[in-house]
Structures are given as structure tokens and as C-alpha cells.
Amino acid sequence: MSDQVHPTQLSTVMLQPASRSARTIFVSALLAVAIIIFPFFATPFHLDVANQILLASIGALSLMLLTGFAGQISLGHAGLIAAGAFTAGILSKEAGAPFWIGIPAAGATGGLLGLIFGLPSLRLRGVYLAVSTLALHFIVVYAGGEYENLVGGSGGILIPPPSLWGLKINTGKAWYVLLVAGAILAFLVTWNVVRSRTGRAFAAVHGRETVAAALGINVARTKLTAFVISSSMTAIAGALFAYYRGFVSIEAFSLYLSIQYIAMIIIGGIGTLPGAFLGALFVTLLPYLIETVVAHLPGAQAMAGSIFAVNYAAFGLVMIVFLVFEPSGLVGLWRRLERRLLIGRQSP
């Protein structure tokens, strides 16, 4: 080895598994500390935003599993979230079912719907599959609307705050603890699935179905598994959302919500689990960010009336920018930046 190490060589040295995992541990520890101390400094408003991000993370993780890893596109994500929320809401309203029944029931409903949503995937691919999930979205939303109208009242279904082991979960902090636990659990589940035999089958099916079949992978079963696991998790996220807000109303589950989740996994970085978190963070914070920016612009008063439109336009623009210029998302951006920084630090 010479004294002079070429920058590119150095970067490969630096990114070797040992140092990489050490850094991963460091970053994770830092993150863990931040997550633990956050509620002690946060205002209720900030806690609420954090809880929204955590809820979105669970939904994004499940979509990442389906689209990012198994390669099955879905435009019906909002429909599944609605299904979970309504399962929890209906059980609570009609049978007074507690939290620990509502959540698994939502998971079961989601799993069943996932099986149905997944059936077209056996015959259809790409765009056609996306369209079939879109159709199912409309049907779920229609059914939810009919139920809401049936039970009357325009305020949706009210759900009392849940209790766990005798503790009432009705403050932002309590929810924060519960949702952090939920997000970690969702992460561990998806992580395990991705690393398991099933996960490798996902990757194979994602790559080339015919080859996967030739390798002895049951393509149909793999696809359905992906749909069932993902949909079940999505529905649980929906049920958590319903409990968190204390009510369910069909108006909250528009097609735009599905698009937001797709944006999360694209912006985060498709095919990576941290990407789901980053995407959820980014998409949830974007409107608040824009509001702050607009408020500090000259002529803020005139813009205030159209902030919704500004949000919409900016959201579309950000999505386009990522799709065109950074298809590997924030995770890809981070990795590139990291590499550049490491080289920059070591070279002089």
C-alpha cells in the first residue's frame, strides 16, 4: 500500500461493512436519544405532528413492502386505511369493542381485503394492476360512505379513547409512546419479512416473474403473501389513525391520500425501509414547511387565501423533481452526500 490513497479507494474503505455497521449503530443511538427526549421539549402541537408522522410511517412501511420490495403497485392504499379505520370504528360503535380487539380485527379485515386486492395481481401487471386497485379503492369508499349515512349524522363515527392495561391513552404523550412502539414493531415486522425467505422471493418476483417461477418460487403465493401482509399492516395503521383522532369519517380517505403514500415511498427512496420513515417525515412536514415559508414571503396576506393551492402545486412539483432527478429518493441523496462528505473530510 502506498501512502497516497486515492479518494475513491478511500471511500470504499470507509464504506466497508465493519465501519458501516458502527456508523449505523451510532446513528441509531443518536436517533433513539432524540426520540426519547423529544416529548419532554415538544409542545402539544409538535407532539401532534410527530404522531401524524409516526402514523404515516406505519402506512408507508407497509406500502414499501408491497411496492418497494415485491414490486406490486397499488393505488388503493387509502381504501385499505379506510377499511381499517372503519373496522375499528364500527366495532367500537356497534359492539363497544375495546382497543385490543379493534386492532387485530382491523388487521384481519385488511388481510382479507389484501387477498381480494391481490387476486387481480395474479393475472395483471403494472398499469393494469394499479387500475384494479384503484377500482377497489372506490368500492371501499362507497361502502364506507353508505355505512356512515346509514348510522346517520354527518360527524362520522365517534370512538372513545382506548385503554391499555388500565391506562387511558388520551394525551399526546401517551399516544407518542404507543405510536413509537407501533412504528418500531412495524419496522421489525417488515425488516424480518424482507430478510426472510419470503423477502427474497419478493425480490425475485419483483425482478423477473418468469425467472422466479423457473427457480421454483410459487409466484402466485408470493404475490398474495405480499398483498396480505402489507394490507393487514395498512389496515392496522388505519385503525390506529381512527383511535388517535377519536372518530372516523369517509371524507378523510380520498384518492389524494393514496397518492401521498406513493409519494412517501418515492421521495423516501423506493426499496429501502429507512426510506419509508424519511418519506413519511417529509410528506407530513411539507405543508407546514410551505406555510412557514409563505408566511415569511412578501405579500403573505395575499397568498394566505391560496395556501392550499400552493401546497398542492408544491407537492406535485416535489414529486416530479424526485421522479425525474432523484429516483432513489432521500435515501439515495443521503448516501451520495455521505460518500462525498467522507471523501471531502479525508482528502486534504
Partner: peptide
């Protein structure tokens, strides 16, 4: 997905 994003951008811009 790009067309979907374009659609959202247009909706905002039109308003």
C-alpha cells in the same frame, strides 16, 4: 407516477 404528480401540480396551479 410522473403523470399523477403532474396532475397534482396542475390542480394547484389552476386554483
Amino acid at each position: 407516477l410522473t403523470t399523477i404528480a403532474l396532475g397534482i401540480l396542475i390542480r394547484g396551479a389552476v386554483v
